[in-house]
Amino acid sequence: MSTKSAASHYVEAAIWLIVVAFLFLQTFNFNQEIEIYRYGASSWPRAILLLMAVAAIGQLIFNRTRASRYEMGEIAKAMDESPEESEGTNANTGLKWYLHTALLLALPFVYINLPKLLAGTNDVGSPELNRYKLIVAAIVVVVFMLLAWRNRVGAVLTLPVLFAAMLQDLGFYALAPAFILGVMFLMGERRAGWMGSVMLGIYGILLLLFVVILYVGLPTGYVRPFYDFGTWVVTVLQ
């Protein structure tokens, strides 16, 4: 059991206890009496949080006990880490990787919040807000591509979140082809012909199944020209 591993147990327990403390403090916001129910609205979440704290401390004690047994040679080394924890993640577990991934994962939230702050409005019909959304979207995508180059696992995690963040504004119909190509590229596919054919195949199947057969109204977006493209696709298909 290395010092690094021991430290990670303390960090894990500390994260749990910080989350528990934060959520416990939040219970005071709804700690109201209910006439017919003596325990009120906060007792159930507080009981869960108490159990969480106990389990987090139990987990820490368990890990430390296991560590001391390990040092005495009582437990086989194979027990120390599960295959899932170690397999294929050597390059993706360090603090640097986590920070880099956190930076990537922050990008979707930059896209969600920055245009509203710049435009000073939350009105989806505002042309100024939509203009900022387009500018921020372009910048975020460029930054994503630059960061993704050095952290492909982090990029795979971020791309769907970014897609979801932009879905309401730019629409499913315009974003889906780029998303399909992006996922394939990040997973190592480089054959342009295959990528194009698979993209068209998946896009076609989805549109046929959900738009033509089942009439599911997928988001068309608000921001032009993406909105125009989405409504054009729906008009053509339906």
Binding site: F179, M184, V198, M199
Partner: peptide, 29 residues
């Protein structure tokens, strides 16, 4: 690499179809 985008987009439609809320897709991811 070909199956993954299909799964993710089917999940997107599945999450969205429940209530018609794009935020459900964000929550899912």
């Amino acid at each position: 690499q070909f199956l993954a985008p299909m799964i993710l987009l089917l999940a997107t439609v599945g999450a969205y179809a429940v209530r018609g809320l794009p935020i459900d897709v964000l929550v899912m991811f």
